[in-house]
């Protein structure tokens, strides 16, 4: 960033590329949510694609912030990563228990 607070051309290009990459993974995750055949497969889409999508968005935004803001952005991404993987497992466990119960009731 120069004295006037403007980003250099290279920084702007890199930031834009990272933001577009993030957008791509968010769109792919959303399409996966609609296309994948069952709830377990849909969990794959939201967990993995959105985690990297948010990481790319955070990396792209880091060009605009100071050190403290960037550290906070990084921490927020790590928290989302951790909560995403744990909640994915909990949702999958709940869905499997429900599925098993329905199958048990049928037999």
């Amino acid at each position: 960033m120069d004295c006037a607070g403007q980003l250099s051309v290279l920084s702007t290009v890199l930031s834009s590329l990272l933001l577009i990459t993030g957008l791509f993974f968010f769109i792919a995750g959303s399409v996966g949510m609609l296309r994948f055949p069952d709830s377990f497969s849909r969990l794959h889409a939201v967990t993995k694609a959105d985690s990297l999508g948010l990481g790319s968005i955070v990396a792209g935004l880091m060009f605009y912030g100071d050190l403290w803001q960037n550290l906070l952005l990084l921490l927020i991404w790590l928290l989302v990563l951790a909560s995403g993987s744990v909640s994915c497992q909990l949702l999958a466990r709940f869905a499997k228990a429900q599925q098993d119960r329905v199958q048990q009731d049928k037999t």
């Binding site: 792919a28 995750g29 399409v31 296309r35 994948f36 055949p37 694609a49 990297l52």
Partner: peptide, 22 residues
């Protein structure tokens, strides 16, 4: 692995033909 995982699920989601066998 995080990058590979996201890329793997993204191309499966966007591929014209279904590429999954859960």
């Amino acid at each position: 692995q995080l990058i590979l995982g996201a890329w793997d699920v993204a191309w499966r989601a966007l591929a014209p033909a279904p590429r999954w066998a859960p």
